[in-house]
């Protein structure tokens, strides 16, 4: 199918034009989980975000020219939403347990802790560039900024990580 002028979906699970939903899901599920995990620092949350993003993009396969780029952007946006929601949730929990002895601890990783303090755009830039191997242009498209801005984010992100783990 070379061009689709109209697609009506009978269910929430759409099937496709140039690529089928199944093919899309099979091809991009693992990378999407990897990207999302990098952005949120949790494999379980990354899986959830990736699943949602795949379903969202899968519904629009017939309408988008570059499903992979659209998926990258969707994952980055949903991870940003999760960070915002998680930050609110963590603030609520901190208030709720203030002064209470902690009954649960989990192993910590210095680098993951350091990543937590980075602004989301810096975190996204360094993890997607150095772990997920995205190009500056791909990161720029997903973050909706210029490639030059990505390079600035990378510079500041790495500097912030250095500073954080040197503390």
């Amino acid at each position: 199918m070379q061009a689709v002028t109209l697609v009506l979906q009978a269910t929430t699970m759409a099937s496709p034009s140039a690529i089928s939903f199944d093919e899309f899901f099979r091809t991009y599920r693992a990378p999407a989980v990897r990207w999302a995990t990098a952005l949120v620092g949790s494999h379980a949350v990354g899986e959830e975000i990736a699943q949602d993003a795949l379903a969202a993009v899968g519904n629009k396969l017939a309408k988008v020219d570059d499903p992979a780029a659209y998926l990258r952007r969707t994952v980055v946006n949903r991870a940003a939403s999760w960070h915002r929601s998680n930050a609110r949730s963590m603030r609520r929990e901190r208030r709720a347990v203030a002064g209470e002895p902690s009954v649960y601890t989990q192993p910590t990783n210095e680098m993951l802790d350091a990543l937590q303090v980075l602004p989301y755009q810096q975190r996204a830039a360094v993890t997607l560039r150095y772990w997920a191997d995205w190009t500056d242009e791909q990161i720029a498209a997903a973050l909706d900024c210029a490639p030059a801005t990505v390079r600035v984010l990378l510079h500041r992100g790495i500097a912030a990580l250095k500073k954080e783990i040197d503390r």
Partner: peptide, 18 residues
């Protein structure tokens, strides 16, 4: 820093479905 970043995320991602 980049190596440590990669190691940390590798650890998180070790249960990758792929």
């Amino acid at each position: 820093v980049i190596d440590r970043l990669r190691s940390a995320l590798d650890e998180v991602h070790s249960a990758d479905a792929s």
